[in-house]
Structure formats: structure tokens, C-alpha cells
């Protein structure tokens, strides 16, 4: 099995879906000749030509609005936003149309499109290039919100997103784009949207996380076990909306102790919904108050301070120790 970076794995998904389905069209800024600023669409222009890989003018609403029209016509557009911090200029197209067309037309039209965007911190970037604002999309009825955590599930989830009959916002943790390689099968692999995954089993503590935060969480869980013998169960959401609460609720009922880790700001973040689900479905099994290790409710700092803002393995470990000791 070839070992691929996340960029290569995403490229594999796009390439194979384009090869097997001529409805799949890739469009965005610099996605053609240049292969995208992170090279996720590298080689697609050469393979499929300008008819299927569109270098668009520099306008996010134009890209998303045009994608909506293509999807209504029966195509499967996959549009790239250069950074998730620039989706706001297209937010009204997502909220006002992509998410509603199925309902508005009572099923006559639907919008099977994917909006891909790199998100999150950790790459020493400029302002607007590091935020983690998945909650906006998860809060919007009619959209799906997917965030992979590694090369292999990035590929399999992107395939699922392209084939999904509803609009999917697909956030790619750019800190992981080239961070490490993973075995990714050449053969088709699809992971269902709306399903979380238990990536580490344990009976003492439940940690719920997703995206780029999975790696520091796993590192902390390993250290915790080595140092104290306590076993943390780690659940990777993979899909933020529709949220799969089955695994983390079952896990919380077993462990009674839950930590949620995300880099998004704390208030009204995805963790708040997870806490609500746990209160509704596992309240009497909880031994301790649920804790959140998250970004803060501030503008994402410029990069000299980003490591102070972002949750990391040490912060997760310290919080886990307190939670176990309590």
C-alpha cells in the first residue's frame, strides 16, 4: 500500500472520482495550471483539461454560486476555497441557496456540491489563514460539515462527500497536509459521512476530538497511559454535522469522564453541542463535569503566539491528569 501525505491522498480521491464520473468538475482560484496553492489539485488540469478543471476569476461568491448552478444542472462540482477564512464572501450562497434549494423546490432540485477549504492553525500564516470556524456550517440546516484527521480518512471521506446528494463543506486540516504519510489503498475506499470512529480504546476517560487535534490527543493519551496507567478512549468525529453521538455517548457511559478538544473558539463551538448531547443522553453516568480544551474566544493570534492559542498534547495531558485525579 503506498504511503501518502494528506495532500496526495486528497489528490487521489479527486483524480479517481474525475476518472470514473464525468459529472465531477473541479473549480477555484489557481486550481488549474498551478494545481492549487497547496497542490491538492496538482496534475488534474493536465489529465482532464480546462473543461473539467476551471481556473476561475478571483471571487468566492462567484465560485460557490456557479457551483450551485452546475449542481442544479446535474454536475458534481468540487470547488476549492483557497483558505476557509475567505468563505465568508460566499457564505450567503451556501446558507441562502446551497443549503436550501432542496427544501425550497420541495425536492425538485438539489445541490450535490463539495466546498473544500483548508482550515486551522499551525502553519505560521498571515491573518485570516488559521481559523477554525466549522460551527458556522454545522449550525446551518441543509449543509453537511466534514473534517478528516489523516491522509487515509481524508481520501475516503472526500470520495463520500463528492458522491453525497447534499452540499458538503469539507475542511482540510492544513497543518496535516504534509505532516506525515499514511498507508492509503489505491483501490476505492469510502467512509460514510455522519459516522464517528473510535481510534483508541480505553476505560478511564473519553476524549472527543477531530481534525488536526487528533494527533496531539493521541500523543497525550499514550503519555497518560505510560505515566499513570490510565487508559483514554479517543473518538474522532470525522463529521461535525450531522453529528454522530452514538460512540461518545456510549463511551461516556462507560468512563464517566469526558474531555472535548478542538481548536475552534470555545463559546458556542462544536464542544458545546457535544456537551449538550452528553447531558441529554449520559448525564447519570458522568462522574465529573465535562471539560473542554479549546481555542479561546479571541481573534486567532498572529503566528508568533499561535502555539499558545492552539491546544496541544501538554495541555490535553495536564487536563486529563486533573480529570482522572478528580
Amino acid at each position: 500500500m503506498p504511503k501518502l501525505t494528506m495532500v496526495q491522498a486528497l489528490n487521489l480521491a479527486l483524480n479517481q472520482e474525475m476518472a470514473s464520473d464525468d459529472r465531477v468538475i473541479v473549480l477555484g482560484e489557481d486550481v488549474g495550471m498551478d494545481g492549487g496553492v497547496f497542490r491538492v489539485t496538482d496534475g488534474l488540469y493536465a489529465a482532464y483539461g480546462r473543461q473539467r478543471v476551471l481556473d476561475t476569476p478571483l471571487a468566492e461568491s462567484g465560485i460557490v454560486g456557479m457551483s450551485i448552478g452546475m449542481a442544479i444542472y446535474g454536475l458534481r462540482p468540487v470547488c476549492e476555497m483557497q483558505f476557509s477564512g475567505f468563505v465568508y464572501q460566499a457564505f450567503h450562497q451556501l446558507e441562502g441557496h446551497a443549503a436550501r434549494m432542496r427544501w425550497r423546490s420541495q425536492g425538485r432540485y438539489h445541490v450535490p456540491m463539495v466546498l473544500r477549504a483548508p482550515y486551522g492553525g499551525g502553519v505560521r500564516a498571515l491573518e485570516h489563514h488559521s481559523e477554525s470556524r466549522e460551527a458556522y456550517y454545522a449550525h446551518t440546516p441543509g449543509l453537511k460539515m466534514v473534517i478528516p484527521s489523516g491522509p487515509r480518512n481524508a481520501r475516503a471521506l472526500l470520495v463520500a462527500a463528492i458522491r453525497d446528494p447534499d452540499p458538503v463543506v469539507f475542511f482540510e486540516p492544513k497543518a496535516l497536509y504534509r505532516a506525515y504519510r499514511e498507508d492509503v489503498p489505491q483501490e476505492e475506499e469510502v467512509l460514510p459521512i455522519g459516522k464517528s470512529q473510535t481510534v483508541r480504546e480505553g476505560g478511564d476517560l473519553t476524549i472527543v476530538t477531530y481534525g488536526a487535534m487528533l494527533r496531539p490527543v493521541l500523543a497525550a493519551a499514550t503519555t497518560l497511559q505510560e505515566q499513570s496507567g490510565a487508559a483514554a478512549e479517543v473518538i474522532d468525529l470525522q463529521t461535525i454535522a450531522p453529528l454522530d453521538d452514538s460512540l461518545f455517548v456510549a463511551s461516556a457511559r462507560r468512563t464517566g469522564r469526558v474531555m472535548i478538544v478542538h481548536e475552534a473558539p470555545r463559546s458556542f463551538g462544536p464542544g458545546a453541542e457535544i456537551v449538550a448531547r452528553l447531558v441529554e443522553k449520559a448525564f447519570y453516568h458522568l462522574e465529573e463535569p465535562i471539560v473542554r480544551v479549546t481555542g479561546y474566544d479571541v481573534v486567532f493570534p498572529l503566528f508568533a503566539r499561535e502555539n499558545s492559542y492552539l491546544p496541544n498534547a501538554d495541555r490535553v495531558l495536564r487536563t486529563a491528569r486533573r480529570l482522572i485525579a478528580a
Binding site: G69, Y73, L75, H97
Partner: peptide
Amino acid sequence: PVSIPVGSQMLHAVGIGWA
């Protein structure tokens, strides 16, 4: 169907025409 946010529907026609 009708589109209420002013001007936003014009882009859909572009995508449809392109498709």
C-alpha cells in the same frame, strides 16, 4: 424557484449555462 436575496441567483444561471 424564486430567489429573494437580491442578485444572488444570477450566479446560478452562470453555472447552469456553463453546465
